[in-house]
């Protein structure tokens, strides 16, 4: 992700053309797929085509599309940012919220092993709600803990989908 941020009336060129970053990523992905395909060991004579042919086509096509997209952007084409019910595109992107949200998400990834789902899930929910602007320091943690515990029991005991209980469930 490059070049987001405030909408100044006249944007610097790297913001104006930040979509070229998409081209770069696509091209890099194409090269990655191609290199991986070419470096596959040759499979002894086989009828039809080997496992490397489709990746070569996909990799090549990625590079081609990257070039076409770059041409489109340089000619003034723009990908239309997606709208939605809760989306206000007139405001500049609020990337701080995104970072906080990502942190809440990753907290769950790190904590789910050592602390178990009931705790890590509650951290995820509360953290995400906080990131998105909820500041009720009584209701938010209660909702988070309730949701996390109910989900744990419903999945673990009713639906037969096991989630890690962690030390908390060992105590209860």
């Amino acid at each position: 992700m490059s070049g987001q941020g405030s909408t100044v009336e006249r944007q610097p060129w790297y913001k104006e053309y930040s979509e070229l970053g998409v081209s770069v990523v696509l091209a890099a992905l194409g090269v990655l797929v191609l290199v991986d395909a070419i470096s596959m060991p040759a499979i002894p004579a086989q009828r039809g085509i080997g496992p490397d042919v489709v990746p070569i086509v996909v990799g090549g096509a990625l590079i081609l599309v990257a070039a076409l997209l770059a041409r489109d952007v340089l000619r003034g084409g723009k990908g239309e940012a997606e709208g939605g019910e809760d989306i206000d595109l007139s405001a500049p992107g609020d990337w701080r919220t995104v970072l906080l949200l990502a942190a809440a998400f990753l907290a769950n990834v790190v904590l789910i092993g050592p602390l178990g789902f009931p705790i890590s899930g509650a951290v995820l929910f509360w953290g995400a709600a906080y990131a998105l602007g909820s500041r009720d320091f009584v209701r938010d943690p209660l909702v988070a803990a309730g949701l996390s515990l109910v989900t744990y029991f419903v999945f673990n005991d009713l639906l037969g989908v096991s989630l890690p209980g962690g030390p908390l469930m060992g105590v209860l």
Binding site: A104, F105, G121, G127, A128, G133, F155, S162
Partner: peptide, 28 residues
């Protein structure tokens, strides 16, 4: 409230991805 809605979506997305094979790598 929208904070709860989207926090809930992330919450259940994580539950779902983890439940597929019980592996933290899936969350990454």
């Amino acid at each position: 409230p929208r904070p709860y809605l989207y926090a809930g979506i992330l919450f259940f997305a994580s539950v779902g991805a983890y439940a597929v094979s019980g592996d933290v790598v899936d969350l990454v």
